[in-house]
Design a protein around this nucleic acid. Structure first.
Lengths: 235, 235, 235, 235
DNA sequence: CATGAATGAGATTTCATTCAT
DNA sequence: AATGAATGAAATCTCATTCAT
């Protein structure tokens, strides 16, 4: 049912005009897939919204699945980059978590299509679907492992933890942004962070750079952001 | 796009023969929807698998959406009942959490279609989709509120907590049962419980195992504290 | 490009109504394929001419190729049967040849689609195409071998001879029936028989039952017609 | 359905570069038409194989049909020329026949596309299709008439004979070269010549190798060509 | 000459649903 | 209750051809 999901049409368009058309299609596809779902979205919907002729679609993508996969991959990349940037300056893991969640929620608010698109991926191209989460998980694992090494987070299976944290973010975003976007979100985020903080915190050593104005633990504080800015990034 | 999702045709067949046919269709539908997804599943697929003629379908269901909604509702009901039963005898909230997760994972293992079906609901009948999680959440809220009242769990927004816990279960089940079912699951469950326990535990009073403030029931009660090295974690 | 050409939809229609519809489609297909050629003929053309809805086609045939193959096979069978019948009573091989040619020409005159259909088969389903000629060849080989055994025809490779004779018939039919159907056909047939007769005739023994009132060669003469009435049949 | 098939754009490219491009397209077209058939072959296939851009096609040919017709005409011309050359030195009609067949078979072996292309012509441009055979027939008629005049071949309708002989060649080539190219071909050719020889031979006079009943002059070969080089030519 | 993007008509195929039996 | 034939709207995909550069 699922093709191996290769990138479509090696070597995209050559002329700038072609580049533009392709981009128009991708943008249109994102919104159409989000609104109608993969199956109910037709190529005609996409080209109509993109303002090009039906046949033009096939100049750039071999089929509906291809453009969908590309949309998903691109969404994931964008989101991961965003979270990476927003957490780059965080002083400790808990801040990374909170900031990451916050950025994620904001992204969802701006892209309500995200959920509908990603969830459809499960049925369109399983590999693409897994890839989406796997890449996030990799970022988490990296960051969490580091935090464990630093003694900031208790030793646990980092990948399991990653999926727990993704699950939390995912479900909260669904319930409080998609279903009922309201200002109460802040309280929900607090609850989540309360859970996460207690759930992760090693409680042993005062985390350097901790919220409680831990004495600037030299290097880590100053070096890490520079050396490993994407430490908390989920990409 | 989605119909209001009223309970369909609640008259139901009268004769036992009719009952049987209807059940055959529901069972077939569950597996077909799980395997091919809602859109790609055809009524013909369902009747074929059910061993009845195409036209027979419309004797029992007014349309494709109806049977799907019924399948989802029924799956949810079954799962909730199962979890309810399996956690009925638990001594405290943490045990409920662990037992609930375990039961859920087992159910997923036995019904790999669960995810694919429930996730499709988002696109077929949004109300049905929310209902599925809402009902779970209600149960959680009830239990968590009780546990907070008992001082067993820190005070937090119980609904937010509910969605966090569902998210954790959902993502772990997806990753370690759907994607890669293996014996390592036990370790994952431990990690999750580690997170949850520290995340929820009030750390204050020894949890009593019954609403009725039952006296510390030996092992369970007495053991946990010992196993809680981070008991003094910053709150 | 070519599928193995299996018969479509095992177990055709059950009801007589279905039988009729299927037959209507086959008949329509024969004429449409003949008129427009396989590629230019559309399913819609066929159903339109058959007087049924477009979708009905797919109740009986999985695709265009299937119905085409069935048309070809059926045409071949009909023609072979006809030739078999018309040559059943022939007194000797030469008569069989002449009678066979005559019947073939007449068939072509009544089914000008034959050529266009069979020739298309080469591109639609090679196996079906070969099968068409192979079956004819088998009949020829049987008859010619017998005639050689009888001493009526010189010893030669019977299959090669079969294809020579088919080629002669095919090309004459094309040139003098398809391209320019005229009464001069009789003269052409004479020329062909002149060639064939001299080309085959053993010249040695007077063929039994020969045109020249050869003396009744006992058994063969009397028995064969009775025992093997389809001796000259090409099926 | 078919256009009158006029020779297309007989201006032709002027620059040598253009000449080359045009030739590349024709060559590519021959193989593409042969492999995929006219309808399934796309202009893009042709330009791709030819190594030029899609638009370039329309610089040299007004449409798909034109290039196809040109391919067919060119194939016919090449083949006729080849046969003409190979039979130029033949001592008598039978030798011409044998040599012609042999050359034809060899050509088919080297151009397995020939059949597929020529047969498609029937559906693309009927005139072109007939022209292909008519031109061959003309050559035959000339040669056969001469042979009849010479008393070498019995008096028969020469055009009918021509089509018989073409049919023989066509079917043998199809069966023993296209379908199953094997060394047994020689035996098949013998059978065919056996048939043809007896079928044509006047049986009266020993065929003299020259029109003028010249006494068996060994090298007649060398003379005749000069005088009537196209005698055996089918063009 | 050459290019490659753009077009849109048209073909095949699927399938939920209806209906007569 | 059950059947299975019939329907036709809709979707995907192809491709000859045009056109601006």
């Amino acid at each position: 049912m699922n093709r191996p999901s290769t990138s479509p049409d090696r070597a995209g368009p050559v002329t700038p005009r072609g580049q533009r058309t392709r981009a128009k299609l991708l943008k249109a596809a994102e919104s159409v897939f989000g609104e109608k779902g993969y199956e109910r979205a037709s190529i005609a919907d996409i080209t109509r919204k993109g303002g090009v002729a039906l046949g033009t679609f096939y100049v750039y993508f071999p089929d509906k699945q291809s453009i969908f996969v590309e949309v998903v991959d691109e969404l994931g990349t964008r989101l991961r980059r965003l979270i990476g940037e927003s957490t780059a300056g965080c002083a400790n893991r808990m801040e990374v978590e909170r900031e990451g969640l916050r950025t994620f929620f904001q992204f969802v608010r701006q892209h309500p299509n995200l959920y509908r698109i990603v969830r459809q991926a499960e049925f369109v191209d399983e590999a693409c679907y897994r890839r989406y989460y796997d890449r996030f998980a990799k970022g988490y694992v990296r960051g969490l492992t580091q935090a464990m090494d630093d003694g900031e987070v208790r030793r646990m299976d980092p990948e399991a933890l990653a999926y727990c944290l993704m699950g939390i973010g995912d479900f909260l975003g669904m319930r409080w942004i998609l279903w009922e976007d309201n200002p109460g979100m802040e309280r929900v985020l607090d609850t989540a962070m309360n859970l996460i903080q207690h759930g992760l915190d090693s409680g042993a050593a005062p985390a350097r750079n901790s919220v409680k104005a831990a004495p600037a633990s030299k290097k880590k504080n100053t070096l890490r952001p520079a050396r490993r800015p994407a430490r908390g990034a989920r990409s």
